[in-house]
């Protein structure tokens, strides 16, 4: 078991090295870099010392060095916890991530919790009442949820909240709490804002999860062991939850592990952009657009790391839940 975990962690490390290198390359691929854009911008404004300032930046960030050397410098610093500086923010990447990661995590965790609390019971209901009116309605709603992109839903909610409710939407805090120290009132304010992105995330996430849960459970309900459990005189509710759902839910653990953890880092970037949330997602998208490469690279490495740790956790959980699965 321990040996297995150690081996998996080793793989994760190797993968991280490869991914960080490849992502470094890809971010580098488009012609020019962040500073060439910056130079054009400054020159357009008529800044005569632009060339000189850019050259200075270039030397400071080591952008004049060849690619491999730059990667080497960045990755060796990375291990020590120094992720380099963001060009655009002109601040260390550590600081930017540190500021926003907490909010990203809070939003992601509440979205995931809401998604699962909704999806599992609805999926179970839908499967146990197959083709009933409730199931048909669920099916229609989930297809809408599947088809509607999150950012569109965000726009609709934004519009609705502003025109009908007259509520200030966007962001995670009201203006007065923006920079206030943490207090009970600030937490309440956060919750007031949090439900909108959490709801939007849950609607899109729930739809697919309901379909998967419904399908899995329908397969399981047809299995002889469900009928055998019923024939032992168990209550229908026990038959469904203790026997059928318990077996049908296992594949969903994998989804939770491999999708939920990376979502904590930079999930729902589009929705977060529309709603102007202080999370990592919008920053990451922006960094990719302007080739703010140390910031983009760092977030990417974290996403990949979280995905792989999530997979490992999912595998371990699955092995603990299902005796047929053994770690070798």
């Amino acid at each position: 078991m321990l040996a297995y975990i150690a081996r998996r962690l080793g793989y994760i490390l190797i993968m991280l090295v490869l991914v960080s290198f490849v992502s470094f390359l890809i971010i580098e691929l488009p012609p020019g870099d962040y500073l060439t854009q910056k130079l054009q911008e400054l020159q357009a404004r008529g800044d005569r010392s632009a060339e000189m300032r850019i050259a200075e930046y270039r030397a400071r960030y080591g952008l004049d060095k060849p690619l491999l050397e730059r990667y080497w410098i960045w990755s060796t610093h990375f291990i020590k916890g120094d992720f380099g500086d963001s060009f655009e923010f002109e601040r260390p990447v550590t600081e930017i991530i540190g500021q926003r990661a907490g909010m990203s995590a809070i939003l992601a965790i509440s979205t995931i919790t809401l998604t699962w609390l909704l999806a599992i019971p609805i999926g179970v209901y839908s499967a146990t009442h197959q083709y009933s009116i409730g199931d048909q309605i669920t099916t229609i709603v989930t297809f809408i949820g599947l088809g509607m992109p999150g950012f569109l839903l965000a726009l609709i909610v934004l519009f609705f909240a502003m025109t009908v409710l007259g509520q200030e939407v966007g962001g995670l805090f009201s203006r007065e709490f923006q920079d206030a120290p943490w207090s009970f009132a600030k937490v309440v304010d956060l919750l007031k804002h949090l439900w909108i992105p959490a709801f939007i995330g849950a609607v899109t996430g729930t739809a697919s999860l309901i379909r998967i849960m419904r399908g899995n459970l329908l397969d399981t309900l047809g299995q002889p062991f469900v009928e055998a459990a019923r024939a032992r005189g168990l209550k229908e509710r026990t038959v469904i939850w203790k026997h059928a759902v318990r077996v049908a839910i296992n594949p969903l653990i994998v989804i939770l592990g491999s999708e939920a953890l990376p979502q904590i880092i930079a999930g729902n970037a589009l929705v977060a952009t529309v709603l102007n949330l202080p999370t990592l997602g919008p920053v990451y998208v922006r960094a990719l657009q302007v080739q703010d490469m140390y910031l983009a690279g760092t977030v990417l490495v974290f996403i990949v790391g979280m995905t792989m740790i999530g997979n490992l956790l999912a595998d371990l959980t699955l092995a603990a839940l299902d005796p047929r699965i053994r770690l070798e």
């Binding site: 002889p224 062991f225 055998a228 077996v247 299902d322």
Partner: peptide, 10 residues
């Protein structure tokens, strides 16, 4: 009839 799948696997 199906002893192979009449017991809940977990």
């Amino acid at each position: 009839q199906e002893p192979m799948s009449s017991l809940t696997p977990v």
